[in-house]
Design a protein around this nucleic acid. Sequence first.
DNA 1: GCTCATATCGATAACGCTAACATAACAGAA
DNA 2: TTCTGTTATGTTAGCGTTATCGATATGAGC
Lengths: 366, 366
Amino acid sequence: MSESERKRRSSKPRQAKAPTIVDVAALAGVSMMTVSRVINSEQKVRQSTRDAVNAAIAKLNYAPNRAARSLAGASQLRLGLLYSNPSEAFLSAFVVGSLEEAGRSDVQIIVQKVEDGEDLGLAAKRMVAGGIHGVILPPPLNEANEVLRVLRQTDTPTVAVTTAVPHEGIATIMIDDRSAAREMTAHLIELGHRRIGFIVGHPELSASGARLEGYREALAEASIPFDEALVAQGYFTYRSGLDAAEELLSLEDQPSAIFASNDDMAAATVAIAHRRGLDVPGDLTVCGFDDVALATTIWPELTTIQQPIMEMSRRAVELLVTLLRNDRKDQIGDLRIEVDYKLVRRQSDAAPRRRPAMRPPVPSWG
Amino acid sequence: MSESERKRRSSKPRQAKAPTIVDVAALAGVSMMTVSRVINSEQKVRQSTRDAVNAAIAKLNYAPNRAARSLAGASQLRLGLLYSNPSEAFLSAFVVGSLEEAGRSDVQIIVQKVEDGEDLGLAAKRMVAGGIHGVILPPPLNEANEVLRVLRQTDTPTVAVTTAVPHEGIATIMIDDRSAAREMTAHLIELGHRRIGFIVGHPELSASGARLEGYREALAEASIPFDEALVAQGYFTYRSGLDAAEELLSLEDQPSAIFASNDDMAAATVAIAHRRGLDVPGDLTVCGFDDVALATTIWPELTTIQQPIMEMSRRAVELLVTLLRNDRKDQIGDLRIEVDYKLVRRQSDAAPRRRPAMRPPVPSWG
DNA sequence: GCTCATATCGATAACGCTAACATAACAGAA
DNA sequence: TTCTGTTATGTTAGCGTTATCGATATGAGC
């Protein structure tokens, strides 16, 4: 066999060629079909094989070739990500997580915002009409009935992320909010706190209730009576945290610790404490929930419950892809995926200062 | 129930498949290769043949399949996006922008994170080894010498986004930091401020210097003498902003406004102001730079300079694609693209409170 | 007439991937 | 054991286009 001189005039002298599915297969010691299965989240692949393939993918820095894929007939999945105005810190982590997974599985994510005052149902309809195969819902839209109704009616597979109470026909990815809040509260109790303030989250979100429950449970377990006055209503916003903290710190018998239902409100609490000349954590322990970027931006950095938001949105995409590609979208309603949270201690908590026990009320100016 | 008939396996109402080059060839009575030549306006086709093919194309309403084209033709472009740990908010906007453009231009984006403590040069090498045609660099990696060195050595076309001072051989997409800072400072002056504090950013990032320059220019234009004491060093972190703000507010002759080089430090300034019992903006105007999520999370929301991040990363991809597709990658080093910033006014700025010392002479009773 | 160069055009092999079918591997049932 | 049925993996055949090179015409020059 004579081989022809293939020397083409190379304008690109030494450009390594992009790794293909074959390279990955060779490295992993499997056939390319198996690699294809792994990147498409198909089911019938043994875990060990899957791991080997993923390792090879990572090592080679492989990314599937879109053109080839769509040529070969793979339908391009399109997932919608509908959001309104949650904490932006939260949203960013959320979007990054889903985009990351989307790149891997080569699905398209249509990110769409519902403006304030816009009709939610309409927005959902518009999204569905755009030819979407599935929808991912971060809070607070994941508990907005108008949205959920439309998605159910149009039979659109949907994953809600971070709802504490699952809605019918809609998959849920969550942490155990109740037990996380209980753990944090127990931690504060163990530090020696007895008067622990609590700032509740938005009343319409199920996580708020779950976290409050956890707080109460921990108190009960430690036989500390529940004091209604120590609970202030918030709405998950920094602004609402300001008011709630003000309320709690104006109590005659001030709390020595405040546990806010999210980091934004915890940050606000720190701000109020400082404004009142209180040292955190010297005079007041403050902790939050979520562990968004804000928690480590401010000083002192917040002790908080880490909710793996990126991981959760990543899983949401993965879940939808798996179900849609394996034609099992009817099973979606039953799915509840719980991921692990973690209590991360930073600088905002400490044992209470030896309290001037039962000190008489300070003269108030109110 | 006689619906089984209805549900019969769908017969022929097959949706008409798009005509392919073969269909055109058949209709025109030529080979598909000739059709390909006509489509690509190559020269060596007889006019009569060309006409016949064009007629067939028109009759069939044929449009070439993009995926197939890029698969068969020039290898698909792959661009790397290397990031470390910037603000997540920044990153998500950045990623969304580039992915959007990537979809449009039919290129692949390989997103890779450099973990904390990981060797930067190595990470860059790994990326290049993956057969990448170009790299996009968000901050802070776009000024990391280890990364830039590797990219230059391997002759990898690179675009840095948001560097104020271009690095040699590397294209830059930026806003005019200097003029933005000047505009903000001028805005404060116009509000009536005369003593304006400035918190400088990290000394190793070029944007810091540019912003400081802009501040000085605006002062000069308004004939306000530059006072070294009003400039405090920061490092773009909240923590450093705390210290800097403390320094500025401890001056005997306090500033009536503080302009921080980014939003994190501006937020810290607000916190310090509150701690000192100063109302923002009543007693102190504070403004920032960047318009990240934090700017609208805290209260009052920050007046700041908005950088169009999505637009910038979109342009970065567009730029690389254009250069690579047209084989002009040697020109990349000279490119500087400037996009528009915007001063967004929110609630953290106001006219200075009239200070007794500065007031025009008051009628005395002595 | 013949040989060559030149224009045209066509046959075939990639390109990287997945669908569909084929086979191996490993259970459990008979 | 042998059969049967899953489950996990491999093989083959395209998807619609362009590259490459070979195959025809066409025509000039001898």
